[in-house]
Amino acid sequence: MGCSKNKAWVVHCLLIAGALTMLIPFLWMIITSLKTLMESTMIPPTLIPSTCQWSNYADVWNSLPFAAFYANTFGMIFFRILGSVFFSATAAYAFARIEFPGRDFLFGIVLVTMMIPGQLFLIPQYDIVAKLGMLNTMFALVMPGIVSAFGTFLLRQFFLSIPKELEEAAILDGCSRWQVFWKIMLPLTRSGLIALGIFTALFAWKDLMWPLIANTSLEEMPLASGLASLQGQYSTNFPQLMAGSMIAIWPMLLLFVIFQKHFIEGISGTGSKS
């Protein structure tokens, strides 16, 4: 008993040390965001700002179109989730459950796409959007993520794990393919759909290079590239940069804390599913 108590202590000590390493950059971000420029460069650094400079937040908010950044980010995430979850689900169902001529070849296209580094697509994707005259639009942000090879692959695994008897019974009862898919199979893969939604959101949220290339006018940027231009503007005014970072990251942190269970389950499923 004494031994296992000691062990728990050691485990906690290690985990707390790690947790502090994870937290310090965030805490330092918050602390710095409330300091004056003068105080931020003081040595030794102060742990608690002498007077909280909430004005840093107002200054940053007014200097860049953050409201547009938010709208663009959430618009991009919303449309990408809508497109990739719907199209991946239909394609994944057909690949998993219907035998049709050319199936293996078409699924090969999905697998090949998954293995290719995404940067290879960027130049021609840019050309396509430019030719359509759609640079600096929501369309440009959404387009590369409207379908998903990864999502098709992931959801196919989910469909494959559902017993065949269920839909065979439904087909004998006279349900059409679409009804089987929509009414029976889709509700059964709910956790897969949520997982794909979360992956899509995370990927869109963290992608920096595509918005950097496609949407160069400030009003059309998502938060990722908006922050990059904030750095261009304030290069070493760290209190302002930290305030801007805080403004940018809190919505996703909040979503994560609220939907934590789904985030964790979605991601932990991929290790064994893939």
Binding site: L23, M29, S225, G244, S245, A248, I264
Partner: peptide, 19 residues
């Protein structure tokens, strides 16, 4: 612990890079 270790995953790389 899990929540704390996961925070960087849901943060924008640009913000992480800045801090």
């Amino acid at each position: 612990y899990r929540t704390i270790y996961f925070l960087p995953v849901v943060s924008a790389p640009a913000a992480i890079a800045m801090v």
